[in-house]
């Protein structure tokens, strides 16, 4: 995968690129070391959110470009929750980069990245992926209904970003342990951190309380 994004650096003005996944984090990067991996991961997550909100308005969205004083960031979704972005000088050749993204995207869709993705994954991430028993990730049907209701109600608090935020938090919650009702407060606490407003946290608690009570009553 690295050699494919290395080809992007040949384009005049392109400093480098990286591929990010909302769950696995930073997959690969060839940007200069000054762009630290943890910062690139954060940038990638913001771009994934931006892409998600853009997609809600434009079904035919291809790329997102952010034009800053010093640099331009160009992002393209490769598949759901996986995105490539390049950081460029303001004078870069956008047409050439778009064409390269198109070719790279085709390669990705053909599955030509699969093997190399595993090879380039950070060791810690690879280990954690292996150690998670898949059975522990299964969510019961009734709990899924409750989660769907909580997700819909979050829309009344966070608006259009609610679905994306909920899915992201829920995925983290599932990764952290068995997804059963005994851990529901942990999920709510993580959602509260995303809401980040005491009034809205209180309102969300009120909204979901009847759904939780109904679930407990069976």
């Amino acid at each position: 995968m690295l050699h494919l994004i290395d080809e992007l650096k040949v384009i005049p003005g392109v400093m480098g690129a990286c591929i990010i996944n909302s769950q696995a984090g930073l997959k690969v990067t060839n940007l200069p070391a000054v762009f630290r991996p943890e910062r690139l991961t954060l940038v990638g997550k913001h771009l994934l959110k931006l892409y998600s909100v853009g997609r809600m308005n434009f079904d035919d969205l291809t790329d997102i470009t952010l034009n800053y004083d010093e640099s331009v960031v160009v992002a393209r979704e490769l598949e759901k929750n996986t995105l490539i972005f390049a950081i460029c000088d303001p004078t870069f050749n956008q047409n050439l980069l778009t064409m390269s993204f198109n070719l790279l995207h085709e390669e990705f869709k053909l599955g030509n990245f699969t093997e190399t993705v595993a090879e380039t994954a950070a060791p810690a991430e690879a280990e954690s992926a292996i150690s998670l028993p898949p059975i522990e990730r299964e969510i019961s049907g009734s709990l899924q209904n409750l989660l769907a209701e909580m997700k819909a109600l979050l829309g009344e608090i966070l608006g259009p970003m609610a679905g994306f935020v909920f899915d992201e938090v829920k995925d983290d919650w599932v990764e952290q342990g068995a997804p059963d009702f005994s851990r529901i407060e942990e999920l709510i606490e993580q959602l509260n951190q995303e809401i980040d407003d005491q009034d809205k946290i209180g309102k969300y608690r009120q909204l979901i309380s009847s759904a939780i009570e109904s679930f407990q009553k069976g």
Partner: peptide, 26 residues
């Protein structure tokens, strides 16, 4: 939402001003 996220990216990477954001479409 977009301007808020663009500002967050700006802070993370250390860019200064965001001139504009574009959503390119088919």
């Amino acid at each position: 939402i977009s301007s808020g996220l663009a500002r967050d990216i700006m802070t993370n990477v250390g860019f200064s001003h965001c001139h504009y954001i574009s959503f390119n479409r088919v």
